[in-house]
Amino acid sequence: MGYLKYISRRLVYGILVLFLTFTGSFFLLFIVPGDAAGALTTGGEGANLAAALQEQREVLGLDRPIQTQYFDALWSALHGDFGISFREKVPASTVYFEAFGDTLRLASVGLLLAIVVGLAVGLLTQVVHLAWLRELLLAVPPLFVSLPIFLTALLLLQLFAFKLGLIEPFGDESLAGLVIASLCIAFPGGANIAQLLAVNLERTMRSPYVETLSNWGLTRREILYRHGLKNAVLPVLTSFGTTVGNIFAGTVITETVFSRNGVGRIIVDAVNAKDIPVVLISVTISAAIFVVVNLLVDALYPIIDKRIQVA
Protein backbone atom coordinates (compact mmCIF):
# COMPACT_ATOMS: atom_id res chain seq x y z
CA MET A 1 0.00 0.00 0.00
CA GLY A 2 2.82 2.36 0.87
CA TYR A 3 4.37 1.80 -2.53
CA LEU A 4 1.20 2.71 -4.44
CA LYS A 5 0.81 5.90 -2.47
CA TYR A 6 4.46 6.75 -3.12
CA ILE A 7 4.08 6.20 -6.87
CA SER A 8 0.87 8.19 -7.16
CA ARG A 9 2.49 11.06 -5.29
CA ARG A 10 5.43 11.03 -7.69
CA LEU A 11 2.95 10.93 -10.60
CA VAL A 12 1.05 13.97 -9.39
CA TYR A 13 4.34 15.72 -8.87
CA GLY A 14 5.48 14.87 -12.42
CA ILE A 15 2.26 16.29 -13.84
CA LEU A 16 2.82 19.46 -11.82
CA VAL A 17 6.33 19.82 -13.28
CA LEU A 18 4.93 19.44 -16.80
CA PHE A 19 2.21 21.98 -16.14
CA LEU A 20 4.72 24.50 -14.77
CA THR A 21 7.03 23.92 -17.73
CA PHE A 22 4.25 24.56 -20.22
CA THR A 23 3.05 27.63 -18.36
CA GLY A 24 6.54 29.06 -17.95
CA SER A 25 7.43 28.58 -21.61
CA PHE A 26 4.08 29.96 -22.77
CA PHE A 27 4.55 33.22 -20.94
CA LEU A 28 8.27 33.40 -21.79
CA LEU A 29 7.52 32.99 -25.50
CA PHE A 30 4.51 35.29 -25.36
CA ILE A 31 6.88 38.25 -24.87
CA VAL A 32 8.43 37.63 -28.30
CA PRO A 33 7.48 40.46 -30.65
CA GLY A 34 5.59 39.38 -33.75
CA ASP A 35 2.89 36.75 -33.49
CA ALA A 36 1.32 33.98 -35.52
CA ALA A 37 -0.80 36.45 -37.48
CA GLY A 38 2.28 38.25 -38.80
CA ALA A 39 3.89 34.96 -39.74
CA LEU A 40 0.82 33.48 -41.41
CA THR A 41 -0.44 36.54 -43.30
CA THR A 42 0.93 36.83 -46.81
CA GLY A 43 0.57 39.58 -49.38
CA GLY A 44 -1.09 42.95 -49.08
CA GLU A 45 0.37 46.38 -48.44
CA GLY A 46 -0.29 49.30 -46.11
CA ALA A 47 -3.92 49.48 -45.03
CA ASN A 48 -4.65 46.26 -46.90
CA LEU A 49 -2.01 44.36 -44.92
CA ALA A 50 -3.15 45.89 -41.64
CA ALA A 51 -6.70 44.75 -42.35
CA ALA A 52 -5.51 41.27 -43.30
CA LEU A 53 -3.43 41.10 -40.14
CA GLN A 54 -6.38 42.15 -38.02
CA GLU A 55 -8.58 39.55 -39.69
CA GLN A 56 -5.95 36.84 -39.18
CA ARG A 57 -5.57 37.83 -35.53
CA GLU A 58 -9.31 37.49 -35.02
CA VAL A 59 -9.35 34.12 -36.79
CA LEU A 60 -6.52 32.88 -34.58
CA GLY A 61 -8.03 34.45 -31.48
CA LEU A 62 -4.97 36.58 -30.78
CA ASP A 63 -7.12 39.62 -30.03
CA ARG A 64 -8.40 38.00 -26.85
CA PRO A 65 -6.91 38.71 -23.39
CA ILE A 66 -3.77 36.75 -22.58
CA GLN A 67 -5.31 34.62 -19.84
CA THR A 68 -8.03 33.43 -22.24
CA GLN A 69 -5.37 32.61 -24.81
CA TYR A 70 -3.33 30.78 -22.20
CA PHE A 71 -6.17 28.53 -21.02
CA ASP A 72 -7.13 27.89 -24.60
CA ALA A 73 -3.53 26.95 -25.46
CA LEU A 74 -3.32 24.71 -22.39
CA TRP A 75 -6.57 22.96 -23.31
CA SER A 76 -5.40 22.46 -26.90
CA ALA A 77 -1.98 21.24 -25.78
CA LEU A 78 -3.66 18.62 -23.62
CA HIS A 79 -5.22 17.38 -26.87
CA GLY A 80 -1.85 17.41 -28.64
CA ASP A 81 -2.49 20.67 -30.48
CA PHE A 82 0.29 23.24 -30.06
CA GLY A 83 -0.80 25.58 -32.85
CA ILE A 84 0.32 26.09 -36.43
CA SER A 85 4.05 26.30 -37.16
CA PHE A 86 4.85 29.83 -38.38
CA ARG A 87 7.43 28.52 -40.81
CA GLU A 88 5.91 25.33 -42.16
CA LYS A 89 2.23 26.43 -42.02
CA VAL A 90 1.24 22.97 -40.72
CA PRO A 91 0.48 21.93 -37.11
CA ALA A 92 3.58 22.21 -34.88
CA SER A 93 2.94 18.70 -33.60
CA THR A 94 3.19 17.36 -37.18
CA VAL A 95 6.50 19.17 -37.70
CA TYR A 96 7.81 17.87 -34.38
CA PHE A 97 6.71 14.25 -34.52
CA GLU A 98 7.78 13.77 -38.14
CA ALA A 99 11.35 14.24 -36.93
CA PHE A 100 10.91 12.60 -33.55
CA GLY A 101 11.61 9.04 -34.70
CA ASP A 102 15.03 9.97 -36.08
CA THR A 103 16.06 11.65 -32.86
CA LEU A 104 14.64 8.85 -30.72
CA ARG A 105 16.75 6.34 -32.64
CA LEU A 106 19.90 8.47 -32.31
CA ALA A 107 19.32 9.13 -28.60
CA SER A 108 18.52 5.48 -27.81
CA VAL A 109 21.64 4.13 -29.47
CA GLY A 110 23.67 6.89 -27.78
CA LEU A 111 22.15 6.11 -24.38
CA LEU A 112 22.71 2.38 -24.78
CA LEU A 113 26.36 2.89 -25.73
CA ALA A 114 26.81 5.36 -22.87
CA ILE A 115 25.43 2.89 -20.31
CA VAL A 116 27.44 -0.07 -21.57
CA VAL A 117 30.73 1.81 -21.91
CA GLY A 118 30.19 3.85 -18.74
CA LEU A 119 29.46 0.83 -16.55
CA ALA A 120 32.31 -1.16 -18.09
CA VAL A 121 34.91 1.58 -17.60
CA GLY A 122 33.66 2.39 -14.11
CA LEU A 123 33.84 -1.25 -13.07
CA LEU A 124 37.23 -1.79 -14.70
CA THR A 125 38.78 0.93 -12.53
CA GLN A 126 38.15 -1.36 -9.55
CA VAL A 127 39.06 -4.65 -11.21
CA VAL A 128 42.26 -3.77 -13.06
CA HIS A 129 45.45 -4.35 -11.10
CA LEU A 130 47.91 -2.66 -13.45
CA ALA A 131 48.52 0.73 -11.90
CA TRP A 132 49.08 2.62 -15.14
CA LEU A 133 45.94 1.18 -16.79
CA ARG A 134 43.91 2.08 -13.73
CA GLU A 135 45.22 5.64 -13.80
CA LEU A 136 44.39 5.84 -17.49
CA LEU A 137 40.83 4.57 -16.93
CA LEU A 138 40.38 7.15 -14.18
CA ALA A 139 41.85 9.96 -16.27
CA VAL A 140 39.91 9.45 -19.50
CA PRO A 141 36.32 10.13 -18.32
CA PRO A 142 37.01 13.68 -17.03
CA LEU A 143 38.58 14.38 -20.42
CA PHE A 144 35.44 13.35 -22.26
CA VAL A 145 33.21 15.35 -19.95
CA SER A 146 35.15 18.49 -20.92
CA LEU A 147 35.17 17.81 -24.65
CA PRO A 148 32.57 19.93 -26.47
CA ILE A 149 30.13 17.66 -28.34
CA PHE A 150 30.63 19.62 -31.56
CA LEU A 151 34.38 18.97 -31.38
CA THR A 152 33.91 15.21 -30.88
CA ALA A 153 31.39 15.23 -33.71
CA LEU A 154 33.73 17.05 -36.07
CA LEU A 155 36.63 14.72 -35.23
CA LEU A 156 34.45 11.64 -35.82
CA LEU A 157 33.19 13.15 -39.08
CA GLN A 158 36.73 13.85 -40.25
CA LEU A 159 37.88 10.35 -39.37
CA PHE A 160 34.96 8.20 -40.52
CA ALA A 161 33.57 10.24 -43.41
CA PHE A 162 36.58 11.96 -44.94
CA LYS A 163 39.58 9.80 -44.01
CA LEU A 164 38.09 6.30 -43.95
CA GLY A 165 35.08 6.93 -46.16
CA LEU A 166 32.88 4.62 -44.08
CA ILE A 167 29.92 7.00 -43.95
CA GLU A 168 28.46 9.81 -46.00
CA PRO A 169 29.49 13.23 -44.62
CA PHE A 170 25.95 14.63 -44.98
CA GLY A 171 22.89 12.93 -43.52
CA ASP A 172 24.03 9.31 -43.69
CA GLU A 173 20.93 7.20 -42.99
CA SER A 174 22.73 3.85 -42.70
CA LEU A 175 23.32 1.93 -39.50
CA ALA A 176 27.02 2.87 -39.51
CA GLY A 177 26.05 6.53 -39.82
CA LEU A 178 23.66 6.19 -36.89
CA VAL A 179 26.19 4.47 -34.62
CA ILE A 180 29.02 6.88 -35.42
CA ALA A 181 26.79 9.92 -34.88
CA SER A 182 25.53 8.45 -31.61
CA LEU A 183 29.12 8.14 -30.37
CA CYS A 184 29.29 11.92 -29.89
CA ILE A 185 26.53 11.80 -27.32
CA ALA A 186 27.61 8.46 -25.89
CA PHE A 187 31.08 9.78 -24.96
CA PRO A 188 30.09 12.53 -22.51
CA GLY A 189 27.14 10.49 -21.20
CA GLY A 190 29.26 7.38 -20.69
CA ALA A 191 32.07 9.42 -19.14
CA ASN A 192 29.63 10.77 -16.58
CA ILE A 193 28.36 7.30 -15.68
CA ALA A 194 31.93 5.93 -15.47
CA GLN A 195 33.04 8.76 -13.18
CA LEU A 196 30.07 8.37 -10.85
CA LEU A 197 30.38 4.60 -10.69
CA ALA A 198 34.15 4.69 -10.09
CA VAL A 199 33.82 7.17 -7.23
CA ASN A 200 30.97 5.24 -5.62
CA LEU A 201 32.66 1.85 -5.99
CA GLU A 202 35.78 3.29 -4.42
CA ARG A 203 33.74 4.63 -1.50
CA THR A 204 31.68 1.45 -1.12
CA MET A 205 34.72 -0.80 -1.15
CA ARG A 206 36.23 1.21 1.71
CA SER A 207 33.13 0.97 3.92
CA PRO A 208 33.28 -1.13 7.11
CA TYR A 209 30.95 -3.90 5.93
CA VAL A 210 33.36 -4.77 3.14
CA GLU A 211 36.03 -5.41 5.73
CA THR A 212 33.62 -7.62 7.67
CA LEU A 213 32.82 -9.62 4.54
CA SER A 214 36.48 -9.97 3.75
CA ASN A 215 37.09 -11.25 7.30
CA TRP A 216 34.45 -13.87 6.60
CA GLY A 217 36.70 -15.08 3.83
CA LEU A 218 35.09 -13.56 0.75
CA THR A 219 37.55 -12.44 -1.90
CA ARG A 220 37.62 -8.82 -2.98
CA ARG A 221 36.17 -9.73 -6.34
CA GLU A 222 33.24 -11.62 -4.81
CA ILE A 223 32.45 -8.66 -2.56
CA LEU A 224 32.68 -6.28 -5.52
CA TYR A 225 30.25 -8.20 -7.73
CA ARG A 226 27.80 -9.41 -5.10
CA HIS A 227 27.60 -6.37 -2.85
CA GLY A 228 29.65 -3.39 -3.93
CA LEU A 229 28.25 -3.03 -7.42
CA LYS A 230 24.66 -3.11 -6.24
CA ASN A 231 25.22 -0.31 -3.77
CA ALA A 232 27.35 1.78 -6.09
CA VAL A 233 24.87 1.61 -8.98
CA LEU A 234 22.12 3.39 -7.00
CA PRO A 235 23.59 6.92 -7.27
CA VAL A 236 24.14 6.28 -10.98
CA LEU A 237 20.45 5.39 -11.28
CA THR A 238 19.46 8.59 -9.47
CA SER A 239 21.27 10.72 -12.02
CA PHE A 240 19.77 8.72 -14.89
CA GLY A 241 17.11 11.36 -15.59
CA THR A 242 19.79 14.03 -16.03
CA THR A 243 21.81 11.69 -18.25
CA VAL A 244 18.82 11.13 -20.52
CA GLY A 245 18.16 14.87 -20.63
CA ASN A 246 21.77 15.59 -21.59
CA ILE A 247 21.76 12.92 -24.26
CA PHE A 248 18.54 14.30 -25.69
CA ALA A 249 20.03 17.80 -25.73
CA GLY A 250 23.24 16.43 -27.27
CA THR A 251 21.29 15.34 -30.34
CA VAL A 252 20.80 19.04 -31.20
CA ILE A 253 24.52 19.49 -31.90
CA THR A 254 25.05 16.01 -33.34
CA GLU A 255 22.24 16.38 -35.85
CA THR A 256 23.60 19.77 -36.92
CA VAL A 257 27.16 18.52 -37.49
CA PHE A 258 26.14 15.30 -39.25
CA SER A 259 23.33 17.05 -41.19
CA ARG A 260 20.87 14.44 -39.92
CA ASN A 261 17.13 14.88 -39.78
CA GLY A 262 15.68 15.16 -36.32
CA VAL A 263 14.09 17.20 -33.58
CA GLY A 264 17.37 18.93 -32.72
CA ARG A 265 17.67 20.61 -36.09
CA ILE A 266 14.00 21.51 -36.01
CA ILE A 267 14.48 23.25 -32.66
CA VAL A 268 17.49 25.25 -33.88
CA ASP A 269 15.62 26.30 -37.04
CA ALA A 270 12.57 27.20 -34.96
CA VAL A 271 14.64 29.34 -32.59
CA ASN A 272 16.23 31.21 -35.51
CA ALA A 273 12.86 31.75 -37.19
CA LYS A 274 11.10 32.54 -33.87
CA ASP A 275 8.65 29.74 -34.71
CA ILE A 276 7.00 29.82 -31.28
CA PRO A 277 4.58 26.86 -31.55
CA VAL A 278 7.46 24.54 -32.49
CA VAL A 279 9.66 25.85 -29.65
CA LEU A 280 6.77 25.39 -27.22
CA ILE A 281 6.13 21.78 -28.19
CA SER A 282 9.88 21.01 -28.14
CA VAL A 283 10.32 22.30 -24.61
CA THR A 284 7.17 20.56 -23.38
CA ILE A 285 8.03 17.18 -24.89
CA SER A 286 11.62 17.39 -23.60
CA ALA A 287 10.30 17.98 -20.10
CA ALA A 288 7.78 15.15 -20.56
CA ILE A 289 10.58 12.73 -21.43
CA PHE A 290 12.51 13.80 -18.35
CA VAL A 291 9.42 13.42 -16.14
CA VAL A 292 8.67 9.94 -17.47
CA VAL A 293 12.29 8.76 -17.05
CA ASN A 294 12.42 10.11 -13.51
CA LEU A 295 9.12 8.48 -12.71
CA LEU A 296 10.53 5.14 -13.87
CA VAL A 297 13.67 5.69 -11.77
CA ASP A 298 11.53 6.58 -8.75
CA ALA A 299 9.42 3.47 -9.32
CA LEU A 300 12.48 1.20 -9.57
CA TYR A 301 14.40 2.68 -6.68
CA PRO A 302 12.57 1.10 -3.73
CA ILE A 303 12.45 -2.23 -5.55
CA ILE A 304 16.23 -2.32 -5.98
CA ASP A 305 17.07 -0.94 -2.56
CA LYS A 306 14.78 -2.37 0.10
CA ARG A 307 16.22 -0.06 2.76
CA ILE A 308 14.50 2.95 1.21
CA GLN A 309 11.35 3.81 3.11
CA VAL A 310 8.53 4.68 0.78
CA ALA A 311 6.01 7.18 2.02
Binding site: T21, L28, F248, I267, V283, S286
Partner: peptide, 22 residues
Protein backbone atom coordinates in the same frame (compact mmCIF):
# COMPACT_ATOMS: atom_id res chain seq x y z
CA UNK B 1 11.71 24.09 -4.37
CA UNK B 2 8.96 22.84 -6.67
CA UNK B 3 9.81 25.65 -9.10
CA UNK B 4 13.50 24.80 -8.84
CA UNK B 5 12.75 21.14 -9.60
CA UNK B 6 10.77 22.22 -12.65
CA UNK B 7 13.74 24.21 -13.92
CA UNK B 8 15.91 21.14 -13.45
CA UNK B 9 13.39 19.10 -15.45
CA UNK B 10 14.15 20.83 -18.73
CA UNK B 11 17.40 19.79 -20.45
CA UNK B 12 19.83 22.72 -20.21
CA UNK B 13 20.30 23.27 -23.92
CA UNK B 14 16.54 23.19 -24.60
CA UNK B 15 15.84 25.78 -21.90
CA UNK B 16 18.63 27.98 -23.28
CA UNK B 17 17.16 27.73 -26.78
CA UNK B 18 13.69 28.70 -25.53
CA UNK B 19 15.16 31.74 -23.78
CA UNK B 20 17.13 32.69 -26.90
CA UNK B 21 13.90 32.60 -28.91
CA UNK B 22 12.69 35.44 -26.72
Amino acid sequence: MRLVDTMLAIPALILSLAILTT
